[in-house]
Amino acid sequence: MDTMTLDAAGQTAASQPESAEREAVDTNTSKTVGKPFCDDAKMRMRNVNVFYGETQAIHDISLDIGCNEVVAMIGPSGCGKSTFLRCLNRMNDTIEDCRVEGELTLDGEPIYGQKVDVVPLRARVGMVFQKPNPFPKSIYENVAYGPKIHGIARRRAELDEIVENSLRRAGLWNEVKDRLDQPGTGLSGGQQQRLCIARAIAVSPEVILMDEPCSALDPIATARIEELINELRENYTIAIVTHSMQQAARVSQRTAYFHLGRLVEVNDTETVFTNPQHELTEAYITGRFG
């Protein structure tokens, strides 16, 4: 398979920064420091460029997301991390003049292309958004929405089971089991976000993308979500965009640092936060800008 070549490419890319002088930082080069690639990649992205009309938002990013790992994406606001995340399940398609170039694969199958159907793709790569966005329907209907449109459940009992399982996994079951018919919008912010996670889980995705899922939540609710992410890792591959470095440190195995549309450094989370290899990463995590 082509894993070999990719690995080789990964190694060269990864080995370069070791020797690269830290004083010679050029923000305009697309070289990524650290370990952007891994062996059992669930998703592979190579040389991704994203344009909004004439302006380029993402410059030549290559990254792997491994099976059952949590990859955190950090960086100053406007650095393109959310844009990149939204490429992974083609949510950028909804933006009229957005154009994505590069090679993106899920289990070796291309994500972009004429023949690729976004509908099953998005069922496999679920997404949780920055602001909790439950539908103005009951809690039950919110979770059942995905299975219903995809025709996953054959019987009512099956659907009930899926809803219950999803809510359990999202750690919400005990709080809502007695009021499944009440509107999802009536829950607290943290509960709403967990409902959205349950909604995403209900279609059995393989990858879950999270776009700053805690930015609208208070610390206690945030802690619950972080706990949940740790539990979900057993079953799902997760990519999470966050503006909180502490959160990245708490939940992720690998961390990617984005800067001005470029992927500056990817490494094991511990390495990034204790021994950043790129000057910009260091500057960011030590709080010199953000």
């Binding site: 159907d117 509908v119 099953p120 069922a123 496999r124 995809h150 025709g151 996953i152 054959r154 099956e158 089971e161 899926i162 399982n165 999803s166 889980i201 279609v203 059995s204 393989e206 079953n235």
Partner: peptide
């Protein structure tokens, strides 16, 4: 298994059926 009696494989298949 994502759900007790539905494997991810089954789910994929069912989605395909309706596409």
């Amino acid at each position: 298994d994502t759900n007790r009696n539905l494997t991810q494989e089954q789910v994929r298949q069912r989605i395909e059926q309706h596409l």
